[in-house]
């Protein structure tokens, strides 16, 4: 019950998904459609599980008056507000249409908070790049050169320098070099990484489907 059935479910679902790529007909396609819908529903419940667990921990923190319990209360209030507004006061399934109360919260609270959260990473990335882009050896110099061409070639001042001030020929403009770096060496490296990832994921998937890899059922 606790181990064999989950392993059997994993194997059946995984094999049906692989099989339906080669035989996209009845009855395989019907099973894969069911599994896809179940996957969506279970994923939604899994995210709910995460949100409810966050609420459980926050409520415990508030009730036991632990350190910084006030911020846990803010989290609970934020969650409850969006949940009530989104479920009951935002035109039902059309909750994401412009003008709903849900979108008001999204545009004026969620969006500024999330964009700024990612925007402050600019400062940390700038600090990290200062350390990474130092020409200490051949490899680090290549890293620096690629980043230099991409960053300077993608802003107007890059072309201003090479085209207007230095009057260089077309093929020496920084924007062209940035495009070349992105299209040739960057693509070559990305392809090597992507093919490597594909081999890794395929072998791991097979291990999971065949029941060799079973850490997802409590760390065996």
């Amino acid at each position: 019950m606790k181990r064999r059935i989950p392993l059997a479910i994993t194997a059946v679902v995984g094999i049906v998904y692989i099989f339906q790529y080669f035989v996209p007909h009845e009855p395989v396609s019907r099973f894969s459609d069911w599994f896809s819908d179940w996957f969506g529903i279970i994923t939604a419940f899994a995210i709910w599980l995460g949100a409810l667990n966050l609420m459980k921990l926050s409520l415990l923190k508030v009730s036991q008056r632990k350190k910084d319990w006030g911020y846990a209360l803010v989290t609970i209030i934020g969650f409850a507000t969006v949940m009530i507004v989104g479920l009951f006061f935002s035109r039902g399934a059309s909750f994401q249409e412009p003008g709903t109360n849900f979108m008001y919260l999204y545009d004026n609270v969620y969006n500024p908070l999330s964009s700024t959260m990612f925007a402050i990473l600019a400062f940390f990335v700038a600090s990290a790049s200062y350390r990474a882009f130092r020409a200490r050896n051949k490899e680090a110099t290549m890293l620096l050169l690629a980043a230099f061409f991409v960053m300077l070639g993608r802003v107007p001042v890059g072309d201003l320098i090479t085209r207007e001030w230095l009057s260089l020929p077309h093929w020496l403009w920084l924007s062209n070099w940035a495009d070349w770096v992105m299209n040739i060496p960057n693509t070559a490296g990305q392809r090597a990484i992507m093919i490597g990832i594909a081999l890794g994921i395929m072998s791991t998937s097979l291990r999971i489907i065949l029941g060799i890899e079973r850490t997802f059922i409590s760390g065996e």
Partner: peptide, 29 residues
């Protein structure tokens, strides 16, 4: 900052809670 961060956590959880309810549970179930 802590206030804004705590609110962001709560609102993000609420956002996904509501979105997945309407997009998956309601429409598919």
């Amino acid at each position: 900052y802590k206030f804004s961060e705590a609110l962001f956590v709560g609102i993000s959880a609420g956002y996904w809670f509501v979105s997945l309810f309407w997009q998956q549970m309601y429409s598919k179930l």
